[in-house]
Computed example of a mutant assay.
Amino acid sequence: MWAELLRVLYALFMGAFLIIMGALTFTAKDEPGIGFRIGYTYLSERARRKANRVSGGLIIATGTLLIIAGFFLPMFYLWGLLLVGLLSSVAIAYLVAKREYELEELSVEAPEGKGREIKPPDVRRHLAFQAICLLGVLALSPRLPEGSVAFFSILIAVFMALTAFASRPLVFQLAPSFKGKMARGFAFSMSVASLMLLILALGAAFNVGVLGGLLLTFLCLTILAYGVFKALVSAYEEGYY
């Protein structure tokens, strides 16, 4: 009974938070720290406006689905829904921003001279750490419930792909100061998320019980919050404010 109540409260809290954040993103104009901000949106007002609307709408939809699903789905699937919804929102908004920027560039005469080359940041150590987490999950596969191995493995693989994606020019590197710190901060947050999944897999593999499950959940939320904090700090240091 208590587990179900906590699940519903979690879904209501996270869903409401996502709806509020989605609404702020959808209506964002040029407020500091609000909206979908990557390199393309700094170069193009058209890309920023379209990306904000798309990402804001998708985040609102994710929050709404999370609230509804909280009454029916186990916590395990709520985490999956949250991650898939947010990752899909980022990916789709990125593609929209890229397309709008390129369309705008087609209508503008190319400037003379060579543009500034942006050196991609090195995220190999983060990719290596995430690969270790993936191998850890696979090593626990004999003890994990059916289907959970694929769930954890696919998510970590997605995190690895996003880490590699973040190192590409015009994703997170392009900001007023051009330091590449946000790309490294994002890669760090993906490593933290991979560690969180490994911890959850350990808890599921060794059947830690209700109290242990609550402690692991608290630990994972703390780790995730730290990863988000580091990513936000790196965004501020990069100049995304």
Rank of each mutant, 00 (worst) to 15 (best):
C220S: 14
D30N: 13
L170I: 09
K114G: 03
F188P: 00
V208T: 10
R124A: 03
L106W: 09
S148D: 05
V123D: 00
R46C: 02
Y236N: 07
E31T: 10
E4D: 15
P32W: 14
G80V: 07
G239P: 04
V149I: 07
M160H: 00
I19N: 05
L18H: 07
F206Q: 07
I34Q: 05
A161T: 00
I92V: 13
M196A: 14
Y10P: 11
L155Y: 06
V123A: 01
L138Y: 03
K119C: 04
M196R: 03
L73T: 04
F129H: 08
V90R: 01
A3R: 12
E105K: 15
P121S: 06
T27V: 08
C133K: 08
E4T: 13
G180H: 06
V171Y: 11
T64K: 05
A139K: 04
R124C: 00
A175Y: 11
G180K: 07
P121M: 04
K230Q: 12
L195M: 11
A166V: 06
G147S: 05
G39A: 05
A69C: 06
F159Y: 02
Y240D: 05
S234W: 07
S189M: 15
S234D: 15
A28L: 09
M190W: 09
T163L: 01
L43E: 04
L140V: 03
I67H: 10
S167M: 04
E100G: 02
L195H: 03
L9C: 15
S141C: 03
E117T: 09
S191P: 04
G136T: 05
I223K: 02
A139R: 02
G147P: 04
A110F: 12
R143F: 11
T64W: 09
G180I: 05
A16M: 11
L134C: 01
R7F: 10
L219H: 06
L144P: 04
L155I: 10
L134V: 00
F165P: 01
Y241V: 12
L174H: 15
E112P: 05
A164F: 11
A235W: 08
L155H: 08
P111N: 08
L135D: 04
A164L: 13
L202I: 15
S88Y: 11
V96C: 01
A16C: 11
S189V: 10
L224T: 12
L87I: 11
M190L: 15
E4Q: 13
L232Y: 06
L134R: 00
E105W: 09
L215W: 14
G70Y: 09
L127K: 07
V228I: 12
G115D: 09
F218D: 05
G57Q: 08
R116I: 15
P176N: 11
Y240Q: 02
L81F: 10
F186H: 07
F76E: 10
A193M: 12
S55K: 03
L66F: 12
P121D: 02
R184H: 09
G33S: 06
T27C: 12
A93N: 00
L78A: 04
H126I: 03
S55W: 15
V84T: 11
V233K: 13
G56I: 13
I199S: 07
I19D: 01
G212N: 14
G22D: 02
F13C: 09
L221F: 15
S55E: 12
G212D: 13
L197R: 03
L103M: 13
L195D: 02
I223G: 07
L66K: 09
